[in-house]
């Protein structure tokens, strides 16, 4: 069952893998932005996660510990951002950009001597006979645990934001920090927690790049994935399940264009190469036109600093 020389089941399976890093980073950033903080340092936190995860995995011999290390690394870096923006009240945009630059430099420094080393392998989960099912088996039952984990995280974030008191408080802080403060919520503390979560998710996404997708360390390995994650949050208009769709769409087109080339499709390569970006722009335009819903859905206090004295 091939379409244009491409087996759709294999294509879907590879796009699910390709989307994991941007999906994780985006869902983390979504929570951060829901709390009213704009952290543009996703790329920096991802790459720190990539190298921390790699180092931990290599020394411990365990990929699972590597992922934990990546998440911790990303979270620790995000704490720098949290301290500067929440306590020093620095400009969030500038601090976020600086965080990316800092993360890239620091990762390169930590990564000295880790070139050419292979991390412990992350094997696909064993679903036994399920993996041999035609089509479904290929798409659903041959992945490593992080692929399923990332989808579970999306579900968890959705459920927490929608149904729990914690989610309500988080959203209140993001919509109007003054009102939340007046009600007695610790705005800064809640935001720091959100920033830490965002950092951990970005770190986890980065670790997936260096441990599974390209199992190795090279400087600049995330190559701009953090920026795509930021775009996906807007694309998703701050809704968790749409993050999943956005990540699959972007990851899917990236994989599809390479597969189309490999299958010898008679479409000029230039169009294929630019298609992921074109579609992102196109969807952003469509989403934010019409009722202006995307703009309305943005947390009202996004990017504003809070101090209790006001």
């Amino acid at each position: 069952m091939d379409i244009g020389g491409i087996n759709p089941a294999i294509l879907i399976a590879s796009l699910m893998v390709a989307s994991v890093p941007i999906m994780l980073a985006a869902i983390g950033e979504l929570v951060v932005e829901k709390a009213g903080v704009l952290n543009l340092g996703v790329e920096g936190m991802m790459i720190i996660g990539a190298i921390c995860g790699f180092v931990v995995a290599v020394h411990s011999g365990s990929a699972v510990l590597g992922f934990v290390g990546g998440a911790v690394g990303g979270a620790v870096l995000s704490l720098v951002f949290g301290f500067l923006t929440q306590f020093m009240l620095t400009n969030q945009v500038a601090t976020g950009l600086a965080l990316t630059l800092f993360g890239q430099g620091l990762s390169s420094m930590i990564g000295q001597g880790y070139n050419g080393i292979k991390p412990p392998a992350t094997e696909p989960l064993n679903f036994g006979p399920l993996a041999d099912l035609p089509v479904i088996g290929t798409i659903l039952f041959r992945h490593d645990w992080m692929v399923y984990g990332s989808i579970l995280i999306i579900a968890a974030v959705w459920a927490v934001l929608k149904y729990t008191r914690t989610g309500l408080i988080l959203r209140a802080v993001g919509e109007s920090h003054d009102a939340a403060h007046a009600l007695g919520y610790k705005v800064v503390r809640i935001r720091i927690m959100a920033i830490l979560f965002g950092g951990a998710m970005a770190g986890l996404g980065g670790a997936y790049v260096s441990l599974v997708r390209v199992p190795q360390w090279t400087d600049g390995i995330t190559a701009g994935a953090g920026w795509i994650a930021l775009a996906i949050v807007v694309f998703a208009s701050w809704k968790p399940w749409r993050v999943l769709i956005g990540a699959y769409l972007f990851g899917g087109i990236t994989v599809l264009q390479l597969n189309l080339q490999a299958a010898g499709a008679a479409i000029p390569v230039e169009y294929l190469s630019m298609s992921p970006y074109l579609i992102t722009i196109l969807v952003l335009v469509i989403m934010s036109s019409g009722r202006g819903k995307a703009a309305l859905n943005a947390p009202a206090a996004l990017g504003q600093n809070f101090h209790a004295s006001r």
Binding site: R213, V214, I221, V255, A263
Partner: peptide
Amino acid sequence: EPAKEADAAKALIDQ
């Protein structure tokens, strides 16, 4: 771009 290079290799292997 390591990730893209790896994806390209994966696409070729899939073919």
